[in-house]
């Protein structure tokens, strides 16, 4: 008797709140995974960065010693400098993608084929891009090397030169990134209102003015995504560095994410605490951008655009 009544009561409670609760119930699996694989590891990294640990033996608490060492570590500053170069130059992919998109945004016979050619580098894996460019730069037989040799008499081995190597890798990274930005802008251009363009034409706008005042404002969502993706892509640049140079020559092409991997997980590393402290610094740098992006999205939502 009492059992039946509680059952009825609980069922009616569920029925009463069903509408409100269902979204949360659907969110739970996602939240659990986000918690386990993103949020908790972030705090674990902070915690781990206070230890000296080789991943096998005992952990020893050393407080801020990892950070003290990090701020006195030449390799860290090289990586940080390279990260900044990456960030600045990688953003060139945004305007470059825009201009290719505008160039391709026309109705010519077979335009889809041309578009797909331009999109092609984004489809191939970063590993393949890295290999192609490594061969392109390779001393003695690489196309780039031979070309420079033909023009100037002496070839340049980009990947062996500590001053050029980072630029060489960024050039490789730009190739697929430009294609990605181009696709974002091509879809954006589809959504440009032809009536506005028509109206602008009537007002005698053309060329740069047309682009700046009429087209670009309508492409703002595409620009936003292109910048976000490019900034994050620049900060996590890892695969190309790993494949093309392994951080070399003598560490001059390292970026923070690669240095972290090297210290924590590579053959000669297994300094988990030190790796974690690099991860923390990288996280804090990323946080600046991520909170900026989130702030902007929230602002936009509030204003209702």
């Amino acid at each position: 008797m009492s059992l039946a009544s509680t059952e009825r009561r609980s069922r009616s409670w569920w029925r009463e709140h069903q509408q409100r609760l269902t979204p949360y119930v659907f969110l739970i699996p996602g939240l659990i995974f986000f918690l386990v694989y993103v949020i908790i590891p972030i705090f674990e990294s902070f915690w781990l960065s206070g230890f000296k640990w080789d991943g096998l033996g005992e952990k020893t608490w050393i407080g801020m010693a990892n950070y003290r060492e990090l701020f006195d570590d030449e390799a860290f500053y090289t990586s940080l400098k390279n990260n900044i170069i990456w960030l600045v130059l990688y953003l060139l992919a945004v305007p470059a993608g825009l201009f290719i998109a505008i160039f391709l945004n026309q109705r010519v016979r077979g335009i889809r084929v041309y578009k797909s050619f331009f999109f092609f580098p984004f489809v191939i894996s970063q590993v393949v891009v890295g290999l192609i460019f490594a061969w392109f730069y390779a001393p003695n037989f690489g196309l780039f090397y031979l070309l420079v040799e033909k023009l100037t008499g002496t070839g340049i081995a980009v990947l062996a030169d500590p001053d050029l190597v980072t630029y060489g890798i960024i050039a490789a990274g730009l190739w697929p990134q430009i294609a990605y930005c181009m696709i974002l802008y091509l879809t954006g251009l589809n959504a440009v209102d032809p009536e506005q363009v028509e109206a602008a034409r009537l007002d005698a706008a053309k060329g740069w003015k047309m682009l700046w005042y009429v087209i670009l404002p309508q492409l703002r969502p595409a620009t936003f995504i292109a910048v976000v993706v490019t900034v994050i892509g620049a900060l996590r640049s890892f695969d190309l560095v790993s494949i093309m140079t392994d951080g070399g020559p003598f560490g001059s092409s390292r970026v923070l994410s690669f240095y972290m991997y090297e210290q924590a997980l590579s053959e000669y590393g297994y300094r988990m605490g030190y790796g974690a402290s690099i991860a923390v610094i990288l996280f804090l740098i990323m946080m600046v951008f991520i909170s900026g992006f989130i702030w902007k999205m929230v602002e936009d939502e509030r204003q209702g655009n």
Partner: peptide
């Protein structure tokens, strides 16, 4: 060998 920093050991072997 110049540019040895960009060579794998096998590349140098072929030299």
């Amino acid at each position: 060998t110049e540019n040895h920093a960009a060579l794998e050991w096998q590349d140098a072997a072929s030299l």
